[in-house]
Amino acid sequence: MKRILFIQRHGPHGSLFGQETLDAILMGSAFASCSVLLLEDGIYQVLKGQDAGQLESRDYSVTYGALRDYGVETIYVSARHLAARGLATEDLLVETVPLDDAGVTGLLHEHDVILGA
């Protein structure tokens, strides 16, 4: 089975990248073994307490909680990018595995396909 790594680099609501990547993860999980890596502002995708009620945008952050049901193995996060934003893994809606830069490099090399905007 192919191993796919989806990289999420964009914050939520400001563009459609986040939602499109999430849709791709849900689709990809049907036929491949998938993991997710949150880099840069992609970390904000899973920040707790999002409320998009006042925007013309769907609050899809909670959908990350369903990824386990879809067979997504692990959600990784760059520890450096997390710290740069003053955040900790406890601030995130889902369980994540923080990686240092060497860990991210290793992760990229472990996967057959890497997708994400």
């Binding site: 939520p12 609501h13 904000y44 307490g49 999002q50 409320d51 006042q54 925007l55 945008s57 609050d59």
Partner: peptide
């Protein structure tokens, strides 16, 4: 803009 702050879960930060 408050709506943008709330949508991103940043109100407490």
């Amino acid at each position: 803009i408050e709506a943008d702050v709330k949508a991103r879960g940043l109100s407490a930060r």
